[in-house]
Design a protein around this nucleic acid. Structure first.
Lengths: 187, 187
DNA sequence: CATTGTCTTCAAAATTCTTTGAAGTCAGTG
DNA sequence: CACTGACTTCAAAGAATTTTGAAGACAATG
């Protein structure tokens, strides 16, 4: 039990834990947040086992986390290989990073949701052929269409964020106020 | 193995599963998404055991999920108690719902992150008193300040969404372009 | 105020997600 | 082309989360 813990390590741990929570909320593993933070706060690239030492993760965990992060562009190979092993550094353009992840992840998620709500609508419309005018089915269809409209609006939002780096409000605002009374009140 | 499954149940399952994924991404349990969807697609309020029957959840799970949802305003007590048991219905103003949840959840999350990054900064600044001018500490401080600025920007974003129901760009845009080159390129 | 059925709680079970570490692959070196 | 050390893979262990269901609290009713 060291009575004078290294403040550097302390800061890395604190920031890393925080980033782990933030990133975890976006569906990534906490260990990825800790690794990224470690690299982001380091002046030089680090090798896999340095990363393991500093974060307390096993070699396997580091390898897996790093290769997933490479795929997402969260981390990159260091250009200068100082010795035989691979070194890594943090992608520092956080804004770009968020944008890319939103585009490749969130956007897919929402697109999938739209498709599945559409599939549910299709199921009910088919059922409506057998029981025309069935009020329960009609009600469900009405609500599902509401959900679909909302989800499509969400898709537009995410899409414009992902492509422009921001939301452009106006094309969406009109559609929204037609669909969502409470949004109309506020927009 | 019924050869003619009820299309209503099929649609509820499909939509419920989809909502479970969406809502799960926001940190809620999938079962909450399924229950909300079931109620949202139902013409009348439902009792706890109806909910359990239709979703396949145990009484305990329904009780817990419903009471958490009541707290978040995702579901409400039905005004007309038809018999002895409590009945529930879905909150239908989804937009308002999202806004409230973002305000009470996301906003806290980000606020907490800001505090913790600030704490990390404090640790390093204290260490700097003992080793004035230490380049490693200075580097870490620089990066941490960047992270802090970004997180604070995120806080502003979430906050304006939560209070207005939308993002107001302009007050943030300036700060952003100063802090984040890549954002500046695009905004 | 006892009975009855509904609702809540919570420890244990089940499930899902994450990490470990040993075995295997690969690349550079002598 | 065998040796060395670094990297990857993956089955099993471990952790974390979610669900179960039985015990008990509660509330309405006779």
């Amino acid at each position: 039990m060291s009575s004078t813990p290294d403040p550097r390590q302390q800061a890395v741990d604190l920031a890393g834990e925080t980033m782990a929570e933030l990133i975890g909320f976006w569906g990534f593993k906490g260990s990825m947040g800790r690794i990224w933070t470690l690299l982001y706060l380091s002046r030089r690239p680090m090798s896999a086992d340095e990363i393991g030492d500093r974060t307390g993760l096993s070699s396997g965990a580091v390898s897996m986390a790093v290769s997933e992060m490479l795929q997402w562009g969260i981390v990159e190979r260091a250009p200068l290989p100082p010795d035989r092993r691979k070194h890594y550094q943090a992608e520092t353009d956080v804004w770009e990073l968020v944008r890319r992840i939103v585009r490749d992840r969130e956007l897919r998620l929402v697109a999938r949701a739209v498709q599945r709500f559409e599939a549910a609508v299709a199921v009910l419309e088919e059922a409506l052929v057998d029981s025309p005018g069935d009020p329960e089915i009609l009600f469900m269809l009405e609500r599902l269409h509401g959900l679909l409209a909302l989800t499509r609006t969400g898709y537009s939002l995410v899409e414009s964020f992902a492509s422009v780096g921001w939301f452009s409000l106006d094309p969406i605002r009109g559609a929204l106020s037609r669909l969502l009374p409470s949004a109309a009140r506020r927009v």
